[in-house]
Design a protein around this nucleic acid. Structure first.
Length: 498
RNA sequence: GUCCCCAUCGUCCAGAGGCCUAGGACGUGGCCCUUUCAAGGCCAAAACACGGGUUCGAAUCCCGUUGGGGACGCCA
């Protein structure tokens, strides 16, 4: 060790300190919404981009509405999207547990600390009474903030209520002044505290409210950047106040715009699918979903649209998040799906298709061995014509099995015409005589035959297509014939020729 | 009602004072390729909300108006 190491040490320490710790903290009161998924994605991208840590924390303090099934569903959707978490449910971590209901003592301790420090006080008001006051004020057209009744209670009053065993909540005492914070996407934001009421931090049932638990956990879990939805922006000053009262460093904030439906209203069920799980069910590729979501409200700056997960990680910056809300455009998602499908290697497509092919009775293990090259060519031919992965299953059928499903309209249009059966018989003879079904010579042979018989090549082409694949549409006929293979082609022509 | 945020083609974005007769993508229309369908290529229509400033010069900076969104819970 030389003098160098002494200089190097602080650098290393500093670079470690720079590593961000971000988190996604869903409440398990519903499925993973696409908006939540995008928030998770931005956090994940930021962590991965900077070699930081992505924490997943479950905010289940609303015991009434939270459920284990929802937790499972959310984890499953995140996993499907490939947003792996470094700390959280299932993987644990230095700040476990990651379920808030398992951390209640921590919140109570923090609240007691705040009460002792005079930063918070007990409140014996009944929720019903407060709601009534609030409604009355609203009816009168004015805003209502808690009137601090309980802050004004004399020690005797308090003693009597305690003796009566009255339920008490804990309220944070909002000091006068102005709270400011810097938002990484919007810049400087400030709130006059006169508009902020003394908010409840511990409910009368002893459970913490969101404001307390989120701050206590973010402090304890050493979260450095809070990346979350725009709808939290007005909560932020309350939380900044809490950080300060707790004597904790305030993290940086980045509020990302909301995702809207086509009518510019917050995306909801009536706009169609809103949960990630539905898109999974609808056979979208997770990489397409990621790409689409990333570009909703964020831009790397150039003109490129299609990005792999790694490319997104490489380019992600919080500063690239735009300020305005974004409308969810399902058609563009479809386009991304197709683009990613086309870019997926055929082996990968085959791997993902295996369950569906098996279910359809079309799978055989030789796809992985002796037939690997052949099936890859078939997939490459079909994939630019598919919008969804699953569409490849029926498209693959005429290539991999003897079963051909005939489209009635196509049969009538292209196989029932005058002389068609006869033309196909002649064409079958020609094919049988050909040394191979290589596209170019096969096409030449077909055109020569059509010429000899005085018909347009299209007549033979269309008839052959329907006879071989059962549909009026397919990839280029001659590539299809070669890959279907002479045996099956001849056989299918035989059943449709005279 | 109060507070906060936002404002470029129908939609998603580019644009960080002159590079803008505003660029890309989805979608739409047309053309090309072609045996069908895709993919791909080319072309077209399509936007700086409005009004004031600041500046030699503004989509870009400031103010206001309007519009949209969000928050005002013992929900998160």
């Amino acid at each position: 060790m030389t003098g160098h190491s002494r200089r190097a040490t602080p650098d290393v320490t500093e670079s470690l300190a720079m590593r961000p710790r971000v988190r996604f903290a869903p409440s398990p009161t519903g499925f993973l919404h696409v908006g939540g998924a995008r928030t998770a994605l931005f956090n994940w991208l930021y962590a991965r981009r900077h070699g930081g840590t992505f924490v997943l924390r479950i905010e289940d303090t609303d015991v009434e509405r939270s459920s284990d099934d929802m937790v499972t569903g959310i984890l499953s959707s995140l996993t499907w999207l490939g947003l792996s978490w470094d700390e959280g449910p299932g993987v644990g971590g230095p700040h476990a547990p990651y379920f808030q209901t398992e951390r209640l003592d921590t919140y109570r301790a923090a609240a007691s600390h705040l009460v002792e420090a005079g930063a918070a006080y007990y409140c014996y008001c009944r929720p019903d009474d407060l709601a009534a006051k609030r409604e009355a004020a609203q009816a009168a057209g004015s805003a209502w903030t808690y009137d601090r009744t309980c802050h004004a209670l004399s020690p005797e009053d308090v003693a009597r209520r305690e003796a009566d065993g009255q339920a008490r909540a804990v309220r944070f005492l909002v000091p006068p002044g102005i709270t400011t914070f810097t938002d990484l996407v919007r810049g400087h934001i400030e709130f006059a505290r006169e508009h902020i009421e003394d908010f409840v931090i511990i409910r009368s049932d002893g459970h913490p409210t969101y404001h307390l638990s989120v701050v206590v956990d973010d402090v304890e879990m050493e979260i450095t950047q809070v990346v979350r939805g725009d709808d939290h922006i007005s909560n932020t000053p309350k939380q900044v106040l809490l950080y300060e009262a707790l004597g904790a460093p305030v993290p940086e904030f980045a509020h990302v715009p909301l995702i809207l439906g086509p009518d510019k209203k917050r995306l909801s069920k009536r706009h169609g699918a809103t949960s990630v799980g539905e898109y999974e069910t609808q056979d979208y590729l997770p990489e397409a979903m990621i790409n689409f979501l990333a570009l909703l409200g964020w831009s790397p700056g150039g003109n490129q649209e299609v990005f792999s997960r790694d490319e997104l990680v490489e380019r992600f910056t919080l500063a690239g998040i735009s300020g305005g809300n974004a409308v969810f455009n399902a058609e563009k998602l479809d386009w991304f799906n197709q683009q990613h499908l086309m870019r997926l290697p055929s082996e990968e497509i085959l791997r993902r298709l295996r369950p569906a092919l098996t279910a359809a009775g079309l799978w055989r293990d030789t796809f992985l061995t002796t037939e690997a090259g052949w099936i890859a060519r078939v997939i490459d031919l079909l994939k630019p014509r598919a919008r969804k992965l699953g569409q490849l299953v029926p498209a693959l059928a005429p290539f991999v099995s003897d079963e051909v499903v005939y489209d009635e309209a196509a049969v009538i249009k292209h196989l029932k015409g005058d002389g068609v059966a006869d033309h196909l018989a002649a064409w079958r003879e020609v094919l049988q005589a050909l040394p191979t079904l290589e596209p170019a010579p096969t096409e030449a042979a077909l055109r020569a035959l059509a010429d000899a018989r005085g018909i347009k090549p299209g007549v033979l082409i269309h008839a052959t297509r329907v006879a071989v694949v059962g549909q009026a549409v397919s990839p280029g006929l001659f590539e299809v014939l070669e890959l279907v293979g002479r045996g099956r082609v001849i056989e299918r022509l035989r059943t449709h020729s005279s």
